[in-house]
C-alpha cells in the first residue's frame, strides 16, 4: 500500500497486475512445466544424463561458439552502430535496414545459404579451402552462423544510446586537452558499456539456444560438432522427454547465470559512470 502513494502516474496497480499475469502466462508457466518434468527423474538419473560424454562435449561446444560469436558481434556491432549513427553517407537507410535482416530471415534459410557459401565447393569456401580453412561442418561454421543471427542485437541496443550521447561532452573533453583516443576511451566508451554488455548478453543468449540455422552448417558429428539443442532433439526423437528437459534445464541455468552476471556488470558500470559524473 505504501507503494501507491509514491506514484504520481495513475494505473500502477492495473499495469503491474497485468505485467505479472502476462509474464506468468508467457514465461513462468512454461518454465515451471520444464522444471516439473525434470523433477520426475532422480538426481542420479539427471546427473547421468547431463554428464554423459556427448552431452558434455555439446555443452562446451555450444558455450564457446556462442561466446565467440557474441564477442565478435560486440566488436563489429559497435563499429556498425557507430558508423550508422555518426556518419552520413548515401543509402544509409538501406544499410540500416540490412542490419535487421538476420531477424527477419527464417533461420533455416540462413543456415542453408551460409552452408552453400562456405562449403568446400561453395563460392567463399572454395577460396578458404585453398588456405586450408574449412568453415562448413566445423565449429568455425557454427560461429559464422551464430554471428550472423546475433548481429542485430548488439547494433540495435547500441544505436539509441549512441544517438543520445551528447556531442558536447566530447567537445568538452577535447577543449580540456584530451586526445581523440583518450576521449573515446574515457568519455564515450564508459557511457556505451552498459548497452554493449546488454547487446553482448542478448546475442549470446540467442546464439546459445539457436537450432535452425546451425544444424545445416555444423554437420552434426557426434563429439565434434553436435550443439546442445541438437542433443535435445535426439532425446526427443527417442521419445525421452525427461532426458530432453534435463539438458534444457542445464542450458536454461547457464543462460540465466550469464544474463544475470552481465546485468550485474551493466548495473555496476552504470553506477560507476553516474557517480563519476
Amino acid at each position: 500500500m505504501g507503494l501507491r502513494k509514491k506514484n504520481v502516474l495513475p494505473g500502477f496497480g492495473l499495469s503491474l497486475g497485468y505485467t505479472v499475469f502476462y509474464l506468468s502466462l508467457v514465461v513462468l508457466i512454461p518454465f515451471a512445466a520444464l522444471f516439473s518434468r525434470t523433477a520426475q527423474m532422480s538426481f542420479m538419473e539427471f546427473w547421468d544424463t547431463i554428464s554423459s560424454p556427448r552431452v558434455v562435449a555439446s555443452f562446451w561446444l555450444s558455450l564457446y561458439t556462442s561466446l565467440s560469436a557474441a564477442s565478435l558481434n560486440a566488436v563489429m556491432g559497435l563499429l556498425v552502430a557507430w558508423v550508422l549513427v555518426r556518419y552520413h553517407f548515401p543509402l544509409k537507410t538501406l544499410v540500416d535496414a540490412l542490419v535487421d535482416l538476420p531477424f527477419a530471415l527464417p533461420t533455416a534459410v540462413a543456415g542453408i545459404s551460409l552452408t552453400t557459401l562456405y562449403s568446400v565447393n561453395g563460392p567463399l569456401g572454395k577460396h578458404l579451402a585453398r588456405w586450408g580453412i574449412e568453415v562448413a561442418y566445423t565449429p568455425l561454421g557454427i560461429i559464422v552462423a551464430l554471428t550472423f543471427i546475433g548481429l542485430p542485437f548488439v547494433v540495435r541496443t547500441l544505436q539509441p544510446v549512441l544517438e543520445d550521447l551528447d556531442v558536447e561532452i566530447e567537445e568538452a573533453a577535447a577543449s580540456l586537452g584530451a586526445s581523440r583516443m583518450k576521449s573515446l576511451l574515457y568519455v564515450v566508451f564508459p557511457n556505451l558499456l552498459p548497452a554493449l554488455l546488454t547487446g553482448f548478453a542478448l546475442s549470446f543468449a540467442r546464439a546459445f539456444g539457436e537450432y535452425g540455422s546451425v544444424v545445416f552448417i555444423s554437420g552434426n558429428m557426434p563429439m565434434r560438432t553436435e550443439i546442445c539443442p541438437l542433443l535435445i532433439m535426439t532425446k526427443l526423437e527417442q521419445f525421452d522427454y525427461i532426458g530432453a528437459t534435463a539438458i534444457a534445464v542445464v542450458m536454461l541455468l547457464v543462460s540465466f547465470m550469464m544474463l544475470f552476471t552481465i546485468n550485474l556488470l551493466g548495473w555496476w558500470s552504470r553506477k560507476r559512470t553516474s557517480s563519476a559524473a
Binding site: T115, T116, S119, Y137, F216, N220, M221, P222, L230, M233
Partner: peptide
C-alpha cells in the same frame, strides 16, 4: 561419413547441391 545432416532432405542437398 563426413557430415551427418539432421534429415534426409538435408543429406540430399549436401550430396547434390554442395557436391560433397
Amino acid at each position: 561419413v563426413p557430415v551427418l545432416d539432421s534429415g534426409a532432405r538435408g543429406s540430399t542437398t549436401t550430396f547434390v547441391q554442395r557436391e560433397i
